[in-house]
Design a protein around this nucleic acid. Structure first.
Lengths: 172, 172
DNA sequence: TGTGTCATGTAACTGGTTACATGATTCT
DNA sequence: AGAATCATGTAACCAGTTACATGACACA
């Protein structure tokens, strides 16, 4: 149940409404932990009900501003440091690779090429983000950069792997 | 809904019972698409009900052997080649990295060290698999090796990233 | 005879997605 | 006046996890 912790993490950086948080998900967490509108609002209600966050202000259009509580901070800290991250990750692309023996080599080759191109595009997008954002040395930037760099290395790895894999395909 | 396709893919390699398939999940698909016992049996029933697989034999202890049908092969092929793989992948480790600014640098450092060690272990396990299995040049081995190599490159990337990241942490 | 493995099934729950539904405020 | 954006909520559904439940067969 990490959506709960993603919300706590964002609120640890300052109070905000569901709407605010939703935009933060789209901007900064899109590639790490996407969330839908309905999910955010229902989880915020639940978090408020259990006392991990609280409503600190109400604005126009029924806007509710939430802030993290001490209990919430404790829960966030516990999750970050003590709950072991998932190691077994599902990968539906790799699952397809496993079954490429059911199509012919030319089709397998196209599949790998497409996958290379898609990830190369992602990589280029991330590079642009790195260049466009001015990275100060405040703590949030430091850790944001670490995550971005992981994404860049991941994408580079995948592109290189795909090219290597194409070279190993059985000839027709 | 990829469990369905994982089952179809496994059955494309030959018929088997739920129990057989469950073991195949544990051996070959554990790092790519883990599945639980209850999930496998319910999905097999559903697949049989929709005609993508069929019961070809019944053995002792209520054992049912399933085989993929032509319809099933068509569905598998469609999924492999035409359904675009998920690009946005959730990563709860990276989500934690994002919020490492809420703990102190020494704790962040420990977090990254632990993560490096865990993935290094995974990498060593994969290396052993690569050495222990004798990889012929049959098509199944070819594609199995591609997936394994992806895992190795992934793990190597992560270990290097973690070490790089530790070096970038703010001093106490 | 009793332990281990083979073998299947179902129920309750959790997390996430899609779709539906509503309405206030701001800006042009 | 109308469009865009701000803002929230709920219902139905799908995928996956945990736990419960049962029993046949093989082997020592």
């Amino acid at each position: 149940m990490s959506l709960r912790h993603a919300l706590l993490g964002l609120l640890a950086g300052g109070p905000g409404s569901g709407y605010d948080l939703l935009r933060k998900f789209e901007i900064s967490l899109a590639n790490v932990w996407p969330a839908t509108q309905s999910q955010v609002y229902t989880e915020l209600s639940r978090l408020a009900a259990t006392g991990l966050i609280e409503v600190t202000a109400e604005g126009p259009r029924g806007r509710k501003e939430y802030a993290i509580t001490d209990e919430g901070r404790a829960e966030l800290r516990h999750w970050v440091l003590e709950v072991p991250p998932q190691q077994r990750r599902r990968n539906d692309l790799l699952l397809r690779v496993f079954f490429l023996d059911t199509v012919d080599p030319a089709e397998a080759r196209e599949f790998l090429l497409r996958s290379r191109d898609q990830v190369a595009e992602l990589r280029d997008g991330l590079r642009k983000v790195r260049e466009s954002v001015d990275w100060g040395d405040d703590s949030l930037s430091v850790y944001g950069t670490l995550a971005l760099e992981w994404g860049l290395r991941y994408a580079t790895m995948h592109v290189e792997w795909a090219e290597w894999a194409i070279g190993r395909l059985p000839g027709k």
